[in-house]
Measured scan of single mutants.
Amino acid sequence: VKKMAKAIMADPNKADEVYKKWADKGYTLTQMSNFLKSKTAGKYDRVYNGYVIHLD
């Protein structure tokens, strides 16, 4: 998940494709939050927020 999150950060155009894969795998927002937690607070906030919007 972190590898794909980094791919989104490097190229935001990949976001919809990645979010669809995550949704197809049934990842919940709680799971995504836990996967994307980082020592650098807020590092993956943009990715998480994008997934929230995708699921909505």
Rank of each mutant, 00 (worst) to 15 (best):
V1T: 04
V1L: 07
V1F: 08
V1Q: 02
K2M: 08
K2P: 02
K2N: 02
K3Y: 09
K3V: 09
K3E: 14
K3H: 10
K3S: 11
M4L: 10
M4P: 05
M4C: 11
A5M: 04
A5K: 03
A5V: 04
A5F: 05
K6V: 09
K6D: 15
K6P: 03
K6W: 11
K6Q: 14
K6N: 13
A7S: 11
A7K: 11
A7M: 15
A7F: 07
A7N: 07
A7I: 13
I8K: 03
I8F: 02
M9G: 03
M9A: 03
M9K: 06
M9I: 13
M9F: 07
M9Q: 05
M9P: 00
M9N: 07
M9W: 05
A10F: 08
A10N: 12
A10Q: 12
A10S: 11
D11W: 06
D11I: 06
D11P: 02
D11C: 11
D11R: 04
D11S: 07
D11Q: 07
D11M: 06
P12M: 07
P12L: 07
P12H: 07
P12C: 06
N13H: 11
N13G: 12
N13Q: 12
N13F: 09
N13A: 14
K14S: 08
K14N: 09
A15M: 06
A15N: 02
A15F: 03
D16M: 11
E17P: 04
E17V: 09
E17H: 08
V18F: 07
V18P: 00
Y19N: 00
Y19C: 05
Y19H: 02
Y19T: 02
K20M: 09
K21Q: 15
K21C: 14
K21W: 10
K21H: 13
K21V: 14
K21T: 13
W22A: 01
A23L: 08
A23V: 07
A23P: 00
A23E: 09
A23F: 08
D24C: 11
D24G: 09
D24S: 13
D24R: 10
D24K: 11
D24V: 08
D24M: 13
D24A: 13
D24P: 00
K25G: 06
K25Q: 14
K25E: 13
G26C: 05
G26P: 06
G26Q: 06
G26H: 06
G26F: 04
G26N: 06
Y27V: 05
Y27P: 00
Y27I: 10
T28D: 08
T28I: 03
T28F: 01
T28P: 01
T28L: 03
L29I: 11
L29F: 09
L29C: 06
L29T: 10
L29W: 03
L29Q: 07
T30H: 12
T30A: 12
T30Y: 12
T30C: 11
Q31W: 05
Q31T: 07
Q31N: 05
Q31P: 01
M32V: 13
M32W: 01
M32L: 13
S33M: 13
S33H: 12
S33T: 10
S33W: 15
N34W: 12
N34H: 14
L36T: 00
L36A: 00
L36I: 02
L36Y: 03
L36V: 01
K37I: 09
K37N: 09
K37C: 14
S38N: 06
S38P: 04
S38M: 06
K39V: 09
K39I: 08
K39P: 10
K39L: 08
K39D: 14
T40G: 08
T40E: 12
T40H: 14
A41H: 13
A41E: 14
A41D: 11
G42H: 10
G42I: 05
G42F: 05
K43Q: 09
K43H: 06
Y44F: 09
Y44K: 02
Y44P: 00
D45K: 06
D45F: 06
D45Q: 08
R46F: 14
R46Q: 15
R46N: 14
R46L: 14
R46G: 14
V47K: 01
V47C: 01
V47Q: 01
V47T: 01
V47N: 00
Y48R: 01
Y48S: 00
Y48W: 07
Y48E: 02
N49H: 13
N49S: 12
N49T: 10
N49K: 11
G50Q: 07
G50M: 07
G50L: 05
Y51G: 02
V52Y: 06
V52C: 07
V52Q: 11
V52L: 10
V52K: 15
V52R: 14
I53W: 10
I53D: 11
I53Q: 14
I53F: 10
H54W: 15
L55M: 09
L55T: 03
L55Q: 04
L55S: 02
D56C: 15
D56K: 15
D56R: 14
